[in-house]
Simulated scan of single mutants.
Amino acid sequence: MAALLGNGLRPALLLRTQTGLKLHQANFSFKSIPKNKKIAYSLLGLAGLSGASYALILDQAVLASDLTLHPPAYAWKHSGVFQSFDHASIRRGYQVYKQVCAACHSMRYLCYRNLVGVSHTEDEARVEAEEVMVVDGPDDDGNMYERPGKLSDRFPKPYANDEAARAANNGALPPDLTYITSARHGGEDYIFSILCGYCDAPAGVTIQEGTYYNPYFAGGAIGMAQALYNEIIEYDDGTPATQSQLAMDVVTFLKWAAEPEHDQRKKMALKALVIFGALISLSYYYKRHKWSVLKSRKIAFKPR
Rank of each mutant, 00 (worst) to 15 (best):
V100T: 04
C101K: 09
C101I: 10
C101R: 01
C101L: 15
A102Y: 02
A102I: 07
A102K: 03
A102E: 00
A103H: 12
A103G: 00
A103K: 05
A103V: 14
C104Y: 11
S106F: 02
S106C: 01
M107C: 06
Y109V: 01
Y109C: 03
Y109Q: 14
L110E: 06
C111I: 08
C111H: 11
Y112S: 06
N114S: 13
N114D: 15
L115I: 02
L115N: 01
L115Y: 00
V116K: 10
V116N: 03
S119M: 15
H120P: 00
H120I: 10
T121P: 04
D123V: 13
E124W: 01
A125G: 01
R126V: 15
V127N: 03
V127Q: 09
E128D: 07
E128I: 07
E128A: 13
E128F: 05
E128V: 09
A129G: 04
A129T: 05
A129N: 02
A129L: 02
E130F: 05
M133I: 14
M133N: 10
M133A: 14
V134F: 00
V135F: 08
D136M: 10
D136I: 08
D136K: 14
D136H: 04
D136V: 12
P138N: 04
D139I: 11
D140T: 07
D140S: 14
D140W: 06
D140R: 12
D141C: 05
G142T: 04
G142S: 06
N143A: 15
M144D: 03
M144S: 02
Y145H: 13
Y145A: 09
Y145E: 14
E146F: 14
E146P: 07
R147V: 11
P148V: 04
P148N: 11
G149N: 00
G149Y: 09
K150D: 12
S152W: 04
D153G: 11
R154L: 12
F155Y: 07
F155H: 05
P156S: 00
P156A: 08
P156I: 03
K157H: 09
P158K: 01
P158G: 13
P158L: 12
P158V: 11
P158C: 04
Y159I: 08
Y159K: 11
Y159Q: 05
D162E: 11
E163F: 01
E163R: 03
